[in-house]
Design a protein around this nucleic acid. Structure first.
Lengths: 224, 224
DNA sequence: TGTACATCAGTGAACGCGCGTTCACTGATGTAC
DNA sequence: TGTACATCAGTGAACGCGCGTTCACTGATGTAC
């Protein structure tokens, strides 16, 4: 607690001395410069450690080095901030999925399409396990329903749908199997993630986790 | 609030007037008779409506018509009560699974085994959807890990494992596919349940839900 | 270029709330003789 | 059977906490002339 305060004050004086105009995200005096982003960043840091329940208005302001009601200049209320943070966590998940997908090197089109689907699933589970706080935060608030979102291709749901379309295009999946396939793939990886991260499978040893992931992905592939 | 108090007092006077000895779960005077069970019941009622967060010591005592610290005569602390309530919710889930399974009438052994597995999955999803508060409560506290539980056959995990063993016994599932099969089946139904109950699939219309459930169960069957 | 003034983005104090937990207590119960 | 007394299962008051939100405020910024 004290350490945090000291750090914030140090940063403040450095800014004031060394820079003539305020940096995008640093404090430069009475006015912050970019408090909105700073608050979101602080909230993300808290969510990362403690999940959605850690995104507490007063704690966020504290972390940003600002009085506990300053946030009301930038967000309507607590919900408003939490919703935004939750969306950011979703974006983070989508980004990791894309990174995993881009890393697939398989050449054979059919195998490639399957590998890209698996990469998507692995990314999902990886995200949940390496960033449990963000994972829980991503799913803590109600976003616009994925099926009727404005830009569905951006989010995790859109990425998954694109992988399934891809499978049909290369002939790896009969078109008759395409409808509702999202539900199966998504449920599978989401279920395993939840059971591992916040459920009764949280305590199983690492090799067992690896087996579970492999089995789950294999069953999805075979089942589709 | 006032209504509740009035009710409690009415109940109290009725008891005092009409009965000579305390009933199992009714208040009979200064001493409650069976406060422990009454508190668990009240906690279950609150969890049913509001999930684990609604299991608040003061609210539970209020609901049971008792001062807010009386619970400490029966539970070590808040955690202790919540853990017990969570276990009760798990029991409820297991009971529903067993009921669904017992209702399967198929005669052909292979088809019967598959039908019993499907019934298990449907029961799981049904429970989540019809009792979302209990579902969330069941998975809110850390129970002893299902793989190393004392009586694993009792719980949902044990019931699922028994269904999979059954499949192998009747020859519906090759023994080589048996290991880790729990992970796939469990993840699938748990994932769909979570997405529907507390996730981004909460708003999809009923017929769509039915399709999702069918697809998910079909993929598990084919995938195993 | 300098100045008056409106607007913006922070602050500090306070409100009201509900929580888990502890304390000293007291009424009810059951047991020993 | 009656009585003294230990034990049990409740009560009421209080502590300390952290929360979201509102209020009147003030320092900083930018704009019109």
């Amino acid at each position: 607690m004290l350490t945090v305060v000291t750090f914030a004050m140090l940063a403040l004086s450095v800014d004031t001395v060394n820079m003539s105009k305020p940096a995008a995200s640093a404090r430069a005096g009475y006015h912050h410069g970019n408090l909105r982003e700073a608050l979101v960043d602080a909230a993300l840091a808290l969510a990362r450690t403690g999940g959605p329940d850690a995104v507490v208005l007063r704690a966020v302001s504290r972390e940003a080095g600002v009085s506990h009601n300053a946030a009301y200049r930038h967000f309507a209320d607590h919900q408003d901030l939490l919703g935004l943070v939750s969306e950011r966590c979703m974006d983070e998940l989508a980004a990791l999925m894309n990174r995993h997908i881009a890393r697939v090197r398989t050449r054979n089109p059919v195998e490639r399409a399957w590998a890209r689907l698996s990469a998507t699933g692995r990314a999902y589970i990886d995200f949940a396990r390496s960033e449990p706080g963000w994972f829980r935060t991503a799913f803590s608030a109600a976003h616009p329903s994925p099926t009727e979102e404005a830009e569905p291709v951006e989010g995790p749901y859109g990425i998954l749908a694109a992988r399934l379309d891809e499978l049909v295009e290369v002939g790896a999946l009969p078109a008759s199997r395409r409808p509702n396939a999202e539900y199966a793939a998504w449920s599978m990886v989401h279920g395993l993630s939840s059971l591992l991260v916040e459920g009764p499978l949280g305590a199983i040893p690492e090799p067992e986790v690896a087996r579970a992931v492999d089995t789950v992905l294999a069953v999805v592939r075979r089942g589709l």
